[in-house]
């Protein structure tokens, strides 16, 4: 059984307008997203700005109310606040934010920053608490003298690790990392990514890893979902997505990753422009009249794609006939 199952999750924001400021429409920030995260794995959620990644994350953790759909955790739907309370959900699931500086209270010392979740969920006395905070600092590779410093006295990478320390304080089962390294330099990024992997090995934590950087996602995630306009257009293993992308949106995203091999520069550029042309031409067929992606179709046991109905039929028939054969 999966650690957490997100089922047809929707988050719609009302748009107010007209004379009386009534709700005239909805921004479908998340519009029917389904995926599961297994224990101990890193699940990648990728998409361009505004595709609904952060909203999905917030809905899963309960910061944003789900308009529809369920998030099943230990057999209970945690979109409901009372279930979250019963399961101690907010202790098991933690979040790391993109901008570590603004997500850490600037007037609190690191000791208090890290101890905060402990104080919320565990009733330790002063001694025990301090011991735990020191342990956590050690885990993230910071000296004990960090205890009495303030967030602005750290470098970006160190701050991000403080965010991680706080997130792992309560021994969570799942950490939702919303663009944890997007604001960081290469060398600092490497530091944080290595570190996240290390504590995963150590404590068996699962991650929902949100990013628009496909290079980083390839490095971190075994299973990946590609999101656009509030829906998932393609899900698969790393190999499925990177070696056999089938949705044009995925192809376009992959083609846009800068190639680090200078020798293939021109070829890569040609390839990208070709894909862009195809994307412009086929865009209409890959989205419905409202510009939304089609339902996902299984093209292999691990790989699902939001194919247009005609293409989808082919695959459905194939898988049916296969089903008969087996």
């Amino acid at each position: 059984m999966s650690l957490i199952e997100i089922n047809d999750l929707k988050v719609h924001y009302p748009i107010r307008g007209g004379f009386w400021n009534r709700i005239v429409d909805n921004v479908k920030a998340v519009d029917g997203v389904t995926f599961n995260i297994e224990a101990g794995e890193t699940y990648g959620l990728v998409g361009e700005s505004g595709s609904g990644k952060s909203t999905t994350a917030k809905a899963i953790i309960g910061l944003e109310k789900a308009t529809a759909g369920t998030v099943m955790y230990n057999g209970k739907d945690v979109t409901k606040a009372e279930n979250r309370r019963k399961l101690d959900y907010n202790r098991d699931v933690q979040m790391i934010f993109q901008d570590s500086l603004s997500s850490l209270n600037p007037r609190k010392r690191i000791e208090d920053v890290i101890a905060e979740p402990l104080r919320n969920f565990e009733h330790l006395d002063k001694e025990e608490e301090k011991l735990r905070v020191l342990q956590l600092l050690d885990i993230v590779g910071l000296d004990a003298d960090a205890l009495y410093k303030y967030p602005h006295q750290f470098s970006g990478g160190q701050r991000q690790r403080i965010g991680v320390a706080r997130a792992v304080a309560t021994h969570p089962k799942l950490i939702i990392a919303d663009e944890p390294v997007s604001a960081l330099d290469l060398s600092v990024q490497a530091q944080v990514l290595n570190f996240m992997k290390k504590i995963q090995r150590q404590f068996g934590i699962s991650y929902l890893f949100i990013s628009h950087d496909l290079g980083v996602v390839r490095h971190m995630c075994k299973n990946i979902a590609i999101m656009t306009r509030g829906r998932i257009v393609e899900v698969g293993t790393r190999e499925d997505i990177y070696n056999n992308p089938m949705h044009i949106y995925t192809k376009r995203l992959l083609a846009a990753i800068p190639e680090t091999n200078v020798n293939h520069r021109e070829a890569h550029r040609k390839h990208r422009l070709e894909i862009e042309k195809i994307y412009q031409e086929q865009q209409a067929t890959y989205y419905d009249q409202d510009g939304m992606a089609f339902p996902l179709v299984k093209v292999s046991p691990t790989h699902s794609v939001a194919l247009p109905p005609e293409l989808a039929k082919k695959f459905e028939q194939q898988s049916e006939s296969k089903g008969v054969n087996v």
């Binding site: 060398s187 990024q189 490497a190 530091q191 290079g215 980083v216 390839r218 490095h219 971190m220």
Partner: peptide, 19 residues
Amino acid sequence: SLLRSMPQRDNESDDLYVI
């Protein structure tokens, strides 16, 4: 060092180099 700290296709699951 910079070049080596980039996530790349050929170091998929390894730890990245940190300066």
